[in-house]
Amino acid sequence: MTTVKMRRTFAKVGVVSGLVVGGLFAGLPVLWLLSTSFKNNGEVFQNPPQLITEGFSFDAYRAILGDGAQLRFFLNSYIVAIAVTILTLLVAILAGYAFSRFTFPFKKTINAVIVSVQAVPPITLVIPYFGLIVALGLYDTYLGLILTHMVFTLPYAIIMITAYLNTLPRELDESVKVDGGSGWTALWRILVPTAVPGLIAVGVYTFMISWNEYLFALTLTRTDEMRTVPIGIQLLMGQHSYEWNQMMAMSVLGSIPVLLLFLFFQRRFIGGLTAGAVKA
């Protein structure tokens, strides 16, 4: 009895110390990001390093939030990411409904194309996009960014929504059709409201991809009026390469939307994500 107990205690100590070491690996860089954003710039590389310094202040945040150019990057990121999320959900709901409730010629082919689109390297597309987006008059516009982001958010969204709709019984749509409603009514009145948990997971993931996108934002926009937060952080690195506290403050501010979305929808998000990843 006692040996079993002792072995359990040993095992527990082992697991907890493993978790703490891993937690430091994962968490310390983030803590340092936060700590540096409150320092005054002269203290960033002080020796020995300190987590909370004498010059602790919100000055770096004030500098970022008081700068219209930086705020514009945030506005742009919000506009693009929210538009991408809404449009991706709309288009993916329609496609997911087709895949989940109909059989039709070329279904497998179209599905295979959508799955394989996920593997196409963005760097392969960025060269023709440069020509195409200019030709379409979408260079340096929100629409150019929104459409190119959707190419990468849509496949995953369709796969996840199709999988989710497949779990909803067909009797749900049939009941609407018996009452004389069409498939269209069944989709929007019954299926979409029932699928809200799955749609939230897809929406959060879509927002994350768009908010974080870098390569297209770098190549398909030219002016500060259109640039997004990731490019803004990079520009800050080039302009005043020594204002580390401001770079960190901007990074913290730029991470808040995704962090909040994740914390708020954690359970649904992880559930939906893994369901999609395992079945994809």
Binding site: P29, V30, W32, L33, M208, W211, N212, Y214, V229, P230, I231, I233, Q234, M237, M247, M248, S251, G254, S255, V258, L259, F262
Partner: peptide
């Protein structure tokens, strides 16, 4: 949960 730009800066 951090974008690559932030990770690069960190």
């Amino acid at each position: 949960l951090f974008t690559i730009a932030v990770i690069a800066v960190i």
